[in-house]
Design a binder for these strands. Structure first.
Lengths: 270, 270
DNA sequence: GTCTATACCTCGATAGAC
DNA sequence: GTCTATCGAGGTATAGAC
């Protein structure tokens, strides 16, 4: 069987070469420029050979996406150990933006190209967020029908940073997107448990809204050459302060979030 | 000269037919599916004829973009009359998201396709934001070199909603993007003048960060089929409350933004 | 397994007849 | 002004020789 194993190794090696070349093309010229011909050229094989390893261009793209999800999650992991949940969320936000700026084409591929690619990243994650929200609302969860119900159990008790991390690590293998979102959910739960979020706040909604905010900063920055006019860090810091309060050691806080929530009456529109 | 005028009218009419057909194709199949052949088919002319009215496909796309900018601005205008600046900003945010959801392909074309398209919308706008920020910082503005310096003068004094609107209306003809951003800047200036924003807050940064946030919600919604899991309005309301405070008449505010800004010490990261 | 060769698309843009 | 015809380039995917 040694011969079969060698052949298998060679097959896997070529598969990796294909993905390597594809990754380089995407990083250099963007996803739209990824074609079977170009990949074949890059690895010095004929286009037909590619179809022995991938059924289509789309399958190659999906493989690249999965790498991207994992890569993004990796940048999250170290920050998940930060004790203060607000600081943790801010650090995660910074890591998210940093990833997008450092790997623009990868970010585009995952979050700005095909809905099915983005869905693969956020689909499972969003389902978990919904489940968490339902759970929080006191809805009954049918463990038999939910394959990942066991993993969600840890979120039921107000988790410490350590348990949140170890729990999310359980997701890492199968679904990086869900794991990433789960790290955020854990931090938001802690904030809420500490009374720094309204008791009626829905952490699932908070997580989705915050994620969308981060996405907006990255996406606009990648798409629009003149955004932002101000330094990116300045915009990011303001955004994080608005969401989770100013935490700088500076005596005078730079931003004072709406001291009078409902001071003025609503005006009639034309 | 009547003959020449008639020919001119006919030429303009065909130009409009081309744009109409293009708009329909983009709305129905997306910008990527817009091809000269398809347009020609739709208007029942040969592809070659198109090149008598537009130099290239790109020129058609840019014409569509300009319509889109103006369309977006139009949805802003009625809300610019709201007296309370925070409520005005929230209404603008809602209008922005509503536009993106109602006209997904138009929104994609303007803000998610080609950087040059988005730049045409935000480029001039961003320059104005920067100018406003400079001005605010006490920098001298050389009126001779800035063609629109006169228009910015109105923002110097804490403007009423009326003056902010009339001022922004002056931008409408030449640059819808700048006009839209200017409406937001005016509202932020008012917030600041009322002491509801820190005196050291940079309204240019606020405007860019808020715009990015709105963009994130729309973009993620358009790209990701499962976002948001929660109703879009719920996510939007939370986001607007986080940015400009809760203004609902409900006795218990749904969201309490970080009552203890710097309660916990910063934790050491691993 | 890997190749050559090719079928079969779609595209933007242009030349030249009418 | 409008057409037909076409160039040349790009793409996915496959058939069949080796």
């Amino acid at each position: 069987m040694g011969i079969a194993e060698r052949k298998n190794r060679q097959k896997q090696a070529l598969r990796e070469r294909i993905l390597d070349a594809s990754r380089r093309i995407v990083m250099r010229e963007g996803f739209a420029a990824l074609s079977m011909r170009k990949i074949a050229d890059a690895i010095e094989y004929s286009p037909a050979t590619l179809y022995l390893h991938f059924a289509s261009r789309d399958e190659i793209a999906q493989a690249l996406c999965e790498e991207g999800y994992a890569q993004l999650l990796e940048t999250f992991v170290p920050h998940a150990r930060i004790a203060d949940p607000a600081e943790r969320l801010k650090a995660l936000g910074r890591a998210y933006i940093a990833f997008g700026v450092a790997h623009p084409q990868t970010y585009r591929l995952i979050f700005m190209e095909d809905p099915s690619y983005t869905g693969a990243a956020l689909g499972g994650a969003a389902r978990k967020a919904q489940a968490s929200a339902d759970e929080e609302a006191g809805a009954e969860v049918d463990d038999a029908t939910t394959s990942s119900a066991k993993k969600q159990a840890a979120a039921r008790e107000p988790a410490t940073a350590a348990t949140a991390l170890s729990d999310s690590a359980a997701h890492t293998d199968d679904d990086p997107g869900a794991a990433a979102l789960h790290i955020m959910l854990g931090a938001l739960e802690e904030l809420k448990a500490a009374g720094r979020l309204s008791a009626s706040a829905d952490v699932g909604v908070w997580a989705e809204a915050f994620w969308a905010t981060l996405h907006g900063i990255v996406a606009l920055n990648l798409t629009c050459p003149v955004f932002p006019t101000a330094p990116l860090d300045t915009v990011l810091n303001l955004t994080l302060d608005v969401w989770f309060g100013s935490s700088s050691a500076v005596p005078e806080p730079a931003v004072k979030p709406t001291p009078e929530p409902r001071a003025k009456p609503k005006a009639a529109s034309a």
